[in-house]
Design a binder for these strands. Structure first.
Length: 286
DNA sequence: CCACTAACCTGTAGGC
DNA sequence: TGCCTACAGGTTAGTG
């Protein structure tokens, strides 16, 4: 999916075009994405004004003028595009919304998603939304720090790679940025999660480093406009640039970027996903 | 509760 | 060119 930086890039691209706009018509070109659309989805959206576009983890949230908020997850290949020109509907354009802005100009907002791993929902109270209420802290918020991670990581046996992908621990990382953050922190993706926590429950120095590199890599990626992976584009149709700054992701066999390190990037499979790392400078914790 | 697998889909890249 | 396999940004449901 678009991970947190890509979703944030989409949010920033969409917001100025759709905030304050009224939804005049909603066209669903199929009954479902990954899940069925909620009951009366189009009717509940029609007539609403999109007040503000938010993001929580990898979820895009559009607060509406009524009680409800439109939640969307982009899955692996989902994307929104917005235009003031008539649009030709493409094969995987599943949701089309005709908007009218306050200045009376028209906009078309289109959700496309070839693999259909994305989904949409409507909720009134975030605390009652099953997609949102189990999420861990925002990686860029104050609640994400080494001490709070230590509480969740203590005594966990599974690999740190999978703990960071678990959205209940920290919400917004995906395969790419987990690999990048672990490399920056010098931690092997195979490290048992609990090894990053001292016996007294406080974070080891490596976990302190990791909470910093998570923040750093996400901020750098957002600043670069996200990464452009395969068919992902931001909402303006432009490409992000952060993929050129990957240090490990997709670099199997290439030299490690750590200064003075003679290692080369390896790829292993953990819980069915590729992990890229340098076996030389990303040591397991002893 | 924890850990792991399979499943949901389509498209693309690479080998032969 | 065609066929086959492997793989791709994520999450949930099901199993043990």
């Amino acid at each position: 999916m678009p991970e947190l930086p890509e979703v944030e890039t989409v949010r920033r691209g969409l917001a100025p075009h759709i905030e304050g706009a009224r939804i005049e018509e909603v066209i669903l070109n199929r009954p479902n994405l990954r899940f069925a659309f909620p009951n009366d989805f189009a009717e509940r959206l029609t007539g609403q004004v999109i007040v503000q576009v938010h993001r929580r983890a990898k979820y895009l949230l559009m607060a509406l003028s009524g009680e409800e908020t439109l939640l969307s997850h982009l899955g692996m290949t989902g994307n929104f595009r917005v235009s003031d020109q008539p649009q030709t509907i493409q094969k995987h354009d599943h949701v089309v919304m005709h908007l009218r802005r306050q200045d009376e100009s028209a906009r078309t907002l289109i959700y496309s998603d070839p693999r259909r791993f994305g989904f949409m929902d409507l909720y009134t109270d975030a605390a009652d939304c099953a997609f949102l209420n189990r999420l861990g802290p925002e990686p860029l918020g104050n609640e994400m720090n080494a001490a709070s991670l230590a509480v969740r990581f203590k005594a966990r046996k599974s690999a740190i790679k999978s703990a960071l992908l678990d959205q209940r621990n920290i919400a917004g990382l995906g395969n790419i940025y987990v690999c990048e953050a672990l490399w920056r922190a010098g931690i092997s993706p195979e490290t048992p999660t609990g090894d990053l926590v001292k016996a007294d429950g406080t974070p080891r120095r490596e976990l302190e480093a990791l909470s910093g590199t998570i923040r750093d890599v996400l901020e750098a990626a957002i600043a670069a406009g996200g990464s452009t992976l395969r068919d992902f584009r931001n909402s303006e149709g432009g490409a992000g640039y952060f993929q050129h700054a990957f240090d490990v992701y997709g670099r199997e066999g290439e030299r490690c970027h750590t200064k003075g390190c003679k290692g080369s990037i390896a790829r292993i499979v953990q819980s069915g996903r590729s992990s890229f790392f340098c076996p030389v400078c990303q040591s397991k914790i002893s």
